[in-house]
Structure formats: C-alpha cells, structure tokens
Amino acid sequence: MSALVIDGLTVVFGAFRALDGLSLAVDPGEVRAVIGPNGAGKTTLLDAITGITRPKSGRIHLGDGLDLTKRSEAEIARAGVRRKFQKPSVFPALTVRENLSLGCGPGCPAATRSARLAAALSETGLEGRADVPAGALAHGEKQWLEIGMVLASEPRVILLDEPVAGLSDAETARTAEIIGTLRRPDRAILVIEHDMAFVEAVADRVTVLHEGRTLFEGGMAQARADARVIEVFLGR
C-alpha cells in the first residue's frame, strides 16, 4: 500500500494548467524527490497536498484512503502531513526547545512532548543549541530546526521544500545525513530540490515534472541519462 497517492491531479489558475492530470505514488519508507524546471508545478503540488490550493479535479489519498482534497489545511496537518517551507518558518524570540515544543501541537501529553523534543534535538543535531533563541541560529541551523518542528508532530508524510537552498556544502551534507535519519517504514518523505547532487544523495526515486505532467520517474542516474530530462531541465 502506498503512503501517498496522487491520482489525475489538475490545478488551474485562469487559463494556466499548473498541474495537468498528474499521478504519482510514494511508498512507505521512501524518500522521493520531485525535480524539474521553474514553473513545472513542484510547489503547486505541495500546495495541493497540504490544502493551500484546491485542485480542479483529481484525488490525493493517504495510505488509509483519506482524500486530502476534501479536507481543510488543519485537518490535513492533524492527519499527519507536515511541510517544511523553503524559507525557514521559526519563531526567532523563542528558544530552539520552545520552537520544537510548538511543533508538537496542542494537547500533546507532557511525557510524550518531552520524548519528542529529545528525539527531534538528537535527529537534527541541535542538542547543544536547545536553549539558544532561534533568531541567533545560522541559516542552516534554522533549516534543521524547522525540520525538527515537523518531526515533533510525528508525521506520516514529510514534505520538504528546497531544504538546502542557501546552504554551504558542509550544511548541505549535514542536511542529507539528517534526512537519512528520518526514514521510517511507516513514513514517506517528499523532497523538492534544485541541487541535483543532494537529490542523488537522498532520494530513492525521482519524479521529473514538466508543464505540470510527469516527464520521467526512476533513479537519479537514469534521469541524468534521459534525453528528455536533459533537454528540458538538466541541460539548462
């Protein structure tokens, strides 16, 4: 059973089809990268999954059959779909620990909250920065903190929007290590990214979008050798 199924998804803005009958399935335990040129529909896909944008047609199902196209943003988040945005969305005046606590969400029991915070600090490598205000963190650390805030909610599906944008080579390598620790048999990870070396390091499979449709799906090595992918994306 797939963790996330996109079936015939079409999103239209005026006369522009941002997604045009897109279908894809992400397996539990998989890290899937979605790549492609600007305007291919990558961010629109994440917006549709999280309920920010409503499709004209098509369905988005979690593994248990829940249709996300019929749910609000809050309901989708409660169902276990969490997104890290391209620009880190952290609370600069609060400490790292306090930001992570907010990621747990309201109503989380104290013992559960404590365990989730410890796990998120460990998995992101921010244990030594737990009591530092988020505003004092380096850019890479803010990216990792927001990943930690997503983790603290115990998500079933993690959506990462350009997690290494603006990072140094060392920070990018560390982010790849962090994503490796996020793998779980009951969790799927969907990554949007332009750094192809990073994609090759973290993704099991890639989906290449072009004009709102799937151009290619498979391994990154095969994508690099595909004439269509080279023409519309990698060759640029």
Rank of each mutant, 00 (worst) to 15 (best):
S2W: 02
A3N: 00
A3W: 00
A3Y: 01
V5A: 02
L9P: 05
V11E: 06
V12T: 11
F13T: 01
R17N: 10
R17F: 10
A18T: 09
L19W: 10
G21A: 10
L22T: 04
S23I: 15
L24H: 10
A25Q: 03
D27A: 02
D27P: 01
V34Y: 00
P37W: 00
P37D: 09
N38T: 12
G39C: 13
T43M: 04
T44C: 09
D47N: 15
I49C: 04
I52A: 13
T53D: 13
P55G: 14
G58D: 06
G58N: 12
G58C: 13
L62H: 01
L62F: 02
G63F: 04
L68G: 00
L68D: 02
S72G: 14
E75S: 13
E75M: 13
I76Y: 01
A77T: 15
A77G: 15
R78H: 11
A79L: 12
G80F: 04
V81I: 12
R83K: 14
R83M: 12
S89K: 12
A93F: 12
L94M: 14
L94I: 07
V96F: 10
C104E: 03
G107Q: 02
P109E: 03
P109Y: 03
A111G: 00
L117R: 05
L117I: 13
A119V: 06
A120L: 08
S122V: 14
E123Y: 14
E123P: 03
E123Q: 15
L126Y: 04
E127Q: 15
G128W: 10
R129A: 14
R129K: 14
A130V: 10
V132W: 01
V132Q: 10
G135H: 05
G135R: 02
G140P: 03
W144A: 03
W144E: 04
E146K: 02
E146M: 06
S153Q: 08
S153F: 06
S153L: 10
V157D: 00
E162F: 05
P163A: 07
P163K: 00
P163D: 01
V164A: 01
G166W: 07
G166T: 08
G166A: 08
G166F: 06
G166Y: 06
G166N: 07
S168G: 12
D169R: 15
A170F: 09
E171T: 06
T172I: 05
T172R: 04
A173V: 12
T175L: 07
T175W: 03
T175M: 15
T175Y: 05
A176G: 15
G180L: 11
G180H: 10
R184G: 12
P185Y: 04
D186E: 15
R187W: 08
R187S: 07
R187H: 13
A188V: 03
I189G: 00
V191P: 02
E193C: 11
H194E: 12
F198I: 07
V199C: 05
D204G: 09
T207A: 11
T207F: 07
V208L: 15
L209Q: 13
E211P: 09
L215S: 04
L215I: 11
G218C: 11
M220I: 13
A221K: 13
A221F: 05
R224P: 07
R228V: 13
E231A: 15
F233D: 00
L234C: 08
L234E: 05
L234Y: 09
